[in-house]
Design a protein around this nucleic acid. Sequence first.
DNA 1: GAGTAATAGTTGATTTTGTAACTAACAAGC
DNA 2: GCTTGTTAGTTACAAAATCAACTATTACTC
Lengths: 150, 150
Amino acid sequence: MTQDKSAKKDDFDLQEFLPYLLNRAAEESSLEFQQVYKDRYGMLRTEWRVLFHLGNYGEMTAKEIGERAKIHKTKVSRAVSKLEQRRYLARNRDTSDRRVEQLTLTSAGQTVYRDLRLVAEAYDSKLAGLFSRDEAKLLRKMLRRLAHMD
Amino acid sequence: MTQDKSAKKDDFDLQEFLPYLLNRAAEESSLEFQQVYKDRYGMLRTEWRVLFHLGNYGEMTAKEIGERAKIHKTKVSRAVSKLEQRRYLARNRDTSDRRVEQLTLTSAGQTVYRDLRLVAEAYDSKLAGLFSRDEAKLLRKMLRRLAHMD
DNA sequence: GAGTAATAGTTGATTTTGTAACTAACAAGC
DNA sequence: GCTTGTTAGTTACAAAATCAACTATTACTC
């Protein structure tokens, strides 16, 4: 127990702090993909996420998308509106519960999805290529754990 | 080469897409720490980052902080103003180049930094505790690689 | 050393996000 | 069947992020 005021050495390292590292890695690794969906389709982050949820998992409600992707309902609502304006998705009132809207991609939306999916796949391979196959697998597993997605 | 229109199966999985996983993990793992600096000190993300840079690395200019942390200069500028208002940091005009301001934490700022650093250390340990020591070490290494911090 | 370019940092306008309050539809209790 | 509560989704307003233009100072060039 030394005097903590002057004798304490600062052995903390911001660059090792996991939340900081995770954010830096996330931002950096989003840039290149962002460029594509932004420049090519004028989409925002939430918009491609909604598009991908519908493209990848099929028909779904706004609420389900929000829960799966952990996006707040107001953000989902706005993204859905914008994607609808651009005719990338269509809403269908659920007949048994008229509060609910089933969302599906239009064929234009599917085309966009398929295009972006190709970009995503290529980019993911590029990122994963920074590591060995086992390391990449472990990385995904650890990220899922951190994100409570397992 | 099969007909790609109908025969193509969608084997892409959004939940395995690294930029998506990284963002989800980053958001999730920031929440708990955010709660502290936000509720306890009314700070924003950029503000604690600036505070930590000064606390952890010592005197620095706004430009250096921006480069190290990859934060845009307007964001740094506003964070510095707010931290100055709260008397957490002081500016010193560089005598040899009067465009430049050397920034340092005041003793109040150091106190806040030390408090938050303790929280950060504890939280980092908690997160790292989800993995083995080797895994955690590898995780940080991989994140640094992805963030171009190596 | 006057003129032009570059740099550190700030400010203002626009866009995007976050928070809370809202509407419309359904559910439950009695 | 009517009050009370809950849920899906939207809207309005405030807070924050982004982008471009700006000031002040220094560096470069002739």
